[in-house]
Structures are given as structure tokens and as C-alpha cells.
Design a protein around this nucleic acid. Structure first.
Lengths: 167, 167
DNA sequence: GTCTATAGATAGATAGAC
DNA sequence: GTCTATCTATCTATAGAC
């Protein structure tokens, strides 16, 4: 999934990568959705861990750079995006994505508080959505200046929030 | 694609919906990518038209509401997201998405200028990414308060930009 | 030029061997 | 419990009929 996205994620391929027969894979994951659910859990744990390292940033500029770094990891975006599409059609995965979203909001809350920025859920959601959007746009357009652009835009956003809080 | 997303978009289904045989569909669109490219052109034209109606909004609040309305049209997001994933793997579609991104930036520029907001490309990109992110999060989580949340967040964002410009 | 029968490949799932 | 041969469904693409 990291390489070929949703379309490339098939039982035969996964089995082959894992060194087992496709027919054996279905013993552990009887249906395709079972397998996707397991992948979703793993991917989300990974992503939240990445967000945790962002929270450690000490300045808004450093945080912006770290978030930008995550948004341009295309393999990462590819996986989450593929899973998001499954979530759109599968209630089980949707639940996992709600937990992911909540987890990110909590972590961003800590980050913003650290910078003495007003950290309501709405402000956290704002930063979250902005980051997701940049990641998706980067995946689809693959522009070379993606990371710089993301970092600059995040800096602008965090600064705006800071000024808002300063009043 | 509007209903079942990327996974449901197959030649047999499209052909059936169109009232022709699958084998006939391949006469007009020899390969799957040809078909996807045609769909991308149509979807993007549609989306830009929607953005055009947003630009007509006379107040930031009205604009926020209209953008929020677009972000929660799930069938819409489903299509664009599916195509974005194809773009990730197909250079031909990537080019189309770059044009889409540029088209949106231009239109948002007009919108922001209308509100006397500093409308650099970066500020437009900011609003674009924020909107994309909200749409994707809404697709994956399907929360009921999605539209209100989107509208509120966009209002906050536009207000922040306005204050920035007021200085 | 328009359309279809058919091929060729690959997907996901199951019944059953060990 | 672990693993596989095999079945069925479905997909994309082509060669060729009209």
C-alpha cells in the first residue's frame, strides 16, 4: 500500500511480500476488510507516533517544519488516503478514523498550549485539516516545492493563531 | 465513482450505467486510464464551477458557509479523492490536478481580494488546503456536525486573514 | 466507424488436507 | 491449529464481425 496505494493492495501481493500463500493469508484475515482493518490499526499507530514527535517541537517554526515533513511523506499519505476511502464505505474503519482524528486533536492541543496559543478544539481541528489538505494536495500534484510551501503556510497559520491569542 | 468510490469504478459498471456493453466502452476509451482521464476532466470542470459560485459570496461568513457546503458533499469528495490517488500513480492525471490546484488558487485570490484580505498565493493555498483537509476528514469520519464545524473553522480562518490584512 | 464475442489475467473466498 | 489446492467471480483488453 505504501508503494502502490489502494489499487495495488491485493491479497496476492500482500501474501507474496509476507512470504506466505494468498490462500494462507485468508486464514489469519478471512476477509479483505479484516486485513484492511489490521493495516489501519498499524498505520494509525504509526501516524500518532509521528505526531507525538511533533509535539516535542519547542518553537512554532520548528513545529511547522516538522508537520510539513509529515505532509510530504508521500508513502504515508498514500496509505492513510487509501484507508480513508475504505472508511468511507466501511463503518468499522470509520470508527478507527474517528479515533485517529480525536487522537490528533488532543496532541495538537498540547502543541498549541505550549506556544500559549488559544487551543480550543476548533483551533486544533483547524491545524489538523490544514495539514491533511496539504498532504493530499502534495500527493496529487507532486510539486517539488511542496515541503517549503507546507512549512511556510503552517508558519503563517501558527502565527495568525498566536496573534489571535495575544489579544 | 460518486457512489462507490475508486473500488467501485470498473468498466463493467460504468458501461452498464451508460447503457452499453463493457466491450463497447473500450472502443471509446481503450484503456482504463483513458476513461479515468475523461472522468477527471469532467469532475474538475464541475468542481471549478462550484468554486466559481463561492466567489460570488458577498461576505466572509457567506463564503465560509458556501465552502463548507462543498466540503461536505461526500460524493464530490469521493470522486476527487479517488482521482487524486490515480494522479499519484499516473503522471497524466497529475498534470490535470496541477491545473485544478492553480485554477482554485486564482479563484480564491479573487474571493479574498473582494474581502480586502491579503491575497498572496500562499494565503490562497492556505484556504485551499484547509478546505481539502476538511473535506477529506469529513469523508473518512462522517461526523454529523461536519458542515457546522467546517463553516465555523472557515470563518475563524477568514477572520484571522482579515485581521492580518488590517494591520 | 460502430459494436460484440471472447480471451487472458487476476481477484477474493472456501472446503478440506495435514 | 496451520496451511493449500482449487473454485468462482470479475476485471481489462483484443481480435474481429457488421
Amino acid at each position: 500500500m505504501r508503494e502502490h496505494g489502494f489499487a495495488g493492495f491485493t491479497q496476492p501481493r500482500v501474501a507474496s511480500e509476507a512470504g506466505v500463500r494468498q490462500s494462507h493469508l485468508t486464514y489469519y484475515y478471512p476477509t479483505r476488510v479484516d486485513l484492511l482493518t489490521a493495516v489501519a490499526h498499524a498505520a494509525i499507530e504509526r501516524l500518532l507516533a509521528a505526531v507525538d514527535t511533533i509535539v516535542e517541537a519547542s518553537t512554532p517554526k520548528a513545529a511547522a517544519a516538522r508537520i510539513a515533513g509529515v505532509t510530504v511523506r508521500r508513502e504515508n499519505t498514500r496509505v492513510i488516503m487509501a484507508l480513508a476511502q475504505v472508511a468511507d464505505q466501511e463503518p468499522a474503519l470509520r470508527e478507527i478514523f474517528r479515533e485517529l482524528a480525536d487522537g490528533i486533536i488532543v496532541r495538537l492541543g498540547k502543541l498549541l498550549e505550549q506556544f500559549k496559543v488559544k487551543a480550543t478544539d476548533e483551533h486544533c481541528y483547524f491545524v489538523h485539516a490544514l495539514s491533511v489538505g496539504m498532504a493530499v494536495i502534495h500527493l496529487a500534484t507532486a510539486r517539488e516545492d511542496g515541503e517549503r510551501r507546507s512549512a511556510r503556510t503552517l508558519e503563517i497559520a501558527l502565527n495568525l493563531l498566536k496573534k489571535e491569542a495575544g489579544k
